[in-house]
Design a binder for these strands. Structure first.
Length: 221
DNA sequence: GCGACAG
DNA sequence: ATCTTGTCGC
């Protein structure tokens, strides 16, 4: 099963959270990309209508046929307010609890958000990757950085930049549809990440990993 | 000071 | 994240 490096005490202030990101950032590795990716996990969090509770959902897909081979749902509470750049502190605790309950260890975590495409180069995908030491990538629906629209054909992409640095890619997964924003989390390459996202999104804009996790969390009333 | 700002 | 109509396509 997945072993989670027990995190640092969870921060209660913005300054503490930023200090934790700066401390963990050097632990991001860029080597160790899996030779073949047979299973990929989708991670997503839904917010319930009434209470202040959230639902963390994880699905594991067989990349070959996109079938769901495992899934976990856990309810929790936001451990931190939503602050751009500190998103992980809100959702990571519940997602880590869900990951611990998986019966299989996926080859890669496909996170709903950014990886290196982050003000301090340590988005949710990096954070979860480092804490589990699993390969991870980030796939965001909106960008934090600047980019030129890629050509309209599926598979086309353009660099995503922050501070004059390439931090990811705007990747067109379907012709004529808004691109998704792919960045490396941990133990992965940007080429490999885009390759994987295209394999996981043969029909829709978002990868099936994200779609199945989103659906699972949303229907868990 | 002002705008921008993953989910 | 979530609030929201009608509409086009599979």
């Amino acid at each position: 099963m997945i072993r989670v490096r027990e995190p640092h005490p969870w921060p209660s202030t913005e300054a503490e959270a930023i200090a934790i990101q700066e401390k963990l950032r050097p632990l991001v590795r860029f080597d160790g990309e899996p030779a073949e990716v047979r299973t990929a996990a989708g991670l997503d969090v839904a917010y319930r209508d009434d209470s202040d509770e959230l639902v963390a959902a994880v699905t594991v897909l067989n990349v070959a046929d996109l079938s769901v081979v495992d899934s976990v749902v856990v309810c929790g509470k936001p451990e931190f307010p939503y602050i751009p750049g500190l998103f992980a502190f809100r959702e990571a605790p519940s997602l880590l609890e869900a990951l611990k309950k998986l019966s299989v260890v996926p080859d890669v975590l496909v996170c709903d958000g950014q990886g290196l495409a982050h003000p301090r180069r340590f988005g949710l995908a990096c954070h979860l990757g480092v804490l589990t030491d699993l390969p991870s990538i980030g796939v965001g629906k909106t960008a934090m950085g600047r980019y030129e629209p890629p050509d309209e054909q599926r598979g086309e992409w353009s660099p995503l930049r922050m501070d004059d640095e390439v931090v990811g890619r705007a990747l067109r997964t379907q012709r004529g549809v808004k691109p998704v924003f792919v960045s490396v989390g941990h133990r992965y390459t940007l080429d490999g990440a885009c390759d994987l996202v295209l394999r996981l999104a043969p029909k829709y804009r978002l990868p099936e990993t994200t779609r199945t996790a989103d659906h699972l969390g949303r229907t868990q009333d």
